[in-house]
């Protein structure tokens, strides 16, 4: 559904924003885009919507150029910058966008109140856009993106400015948005969010895909750092894991990068010695590991 092949974008002054970037997102997939600031995420999204033209390479949505696709089928787009007219009331804003999304009056009468309620905006429906808080504005941005139930959703920093309650609700809404005939592309700095929502995450840096991570894979890296917490037997740790560092509360340790076999052998030895294990978990998620590893390698 979404395909970029050797996509290159050079801005004036020879600034290379994207450098032969290739990625795919199929129907039914949720694909994440992660990368440090200036990696090229915003440029990529602008190219996907036809707001920029590639310097080289191709970008296709449903086999069409971005503008052809958008103008024939629409895209649900939530941008990082929620730019809406400040003097429009919330309900009027959605009514306007519903017309532009090609939603019939009958559908709009059903969809708009439902979206306002789902996103907790019903009590703000008569407020002007300029009177909304950052979080409410973000929710309005998502509401307009969902008008017309588009088959392609491009969401840039979806949870930007949300409080913890809405952060969790947003993730639940996002999970519900997944369906077999929909393609979702989510760009975010929040790796936990991408881990939870995306099937595959492209890590981009300096305009290139430096790694594609399958978040559903159970394969683990050869060596990872772990956090170990014991309720008793902490004295044994130094002998079993000589490189372990005390971390935080008593009984907590950080284990430097070790492989699974070494970890399991050490844990067995601790348990045999009478230690009581509370928890053991990687210090970073799989995606965080890959992100750090990939971006550090590029930086080096």
């Amino acid at each position: 559904m979404i395909e970029c092949v050797d996509l290159t974008k050079t801005y004036q002054g020879n600034v290379l924003a994207l450098d032969r970037l290739s990625l795919r997102a199929e129907r039914g997939e949720v694909v994440g885009i992660a990368g440090p600031n200036g990696a090229g995420k915003s440029t990529l999204i602008a190219l996907l919507l036809g707001y920029l033209h590639p310097t080289a390479g191709t970008v296709r949505l449903g086999g069409l150029s971005p503008r052809q696709y958008v103008e024939h089928y629409r895209v649900g787009y939530l941008s990082e910058l929620i730019a809406m007219h400040p003097r429009w009331p919330v309900d009027e804003t959605l009514a306007r966008f519903a017309l532009l999304a090609g939603v019939s009056n009958a559908e709009a009468r059903a969809q708009i109140p439902a979206l306002l309620e789902q996103l907790g905006l019903d009590e703000h429906s008569t407020k002007l856009v300029r009177a909304l808080s950052k979080g409410n504005l973000q929710r309005l941005g998502l509401a307009q993106a969902l008008l017309g139930d588009p088959d392609v959703l491009i969401l840039d920093e979806t949870t930007h400015g949300l409080d913890p309650v809405w952060l969790l609700r947003f993730r639940a809404i996002m999970r519900d948005l997944r369906r077999p005939d929909r393609t979702m592309l989510i760009a975010s700095h929040d790796l936990a969010e991408l881990s939870a929502l995306a099937d595959r995450v492209y890590i981009i840096d300096h305009g290139q895909v430096v790694r594609a991570v399958d978040t559903r894979s159970t394969a683990t890296p050869e060596a990872r750092e772990y956090r170990l917490t014991l309720s008793s037997g902490a004295a044994l740790v130094a002998s079993v894991f000589p490189a372990a560092r005390p971390a935080g509360p008593e009984g907590s340790f950080e284990l430097p990068a070790i492989d699974l076999a070494t970890l399991n052998a050490g844990l067995a030895e601790l348990l045999r010695g009478g230690a009581q294990l509370v928890s053991v978990a990687p210090t970073e998620s799989l995606l965080e590991y890959h992100f750090r590893d990939a971006v550090e390698k590029v930086s080096v």
Partner: peptide, 12 residues
């Protein structure tokens, strides 16, 4: 930046 949402809709 109003173009961002306007022209993500099926409008030329």
């Amino acid at each position: 930046g109003y173009y961002r949402f306007l022209f993500a809709k099926p409008v030329g």
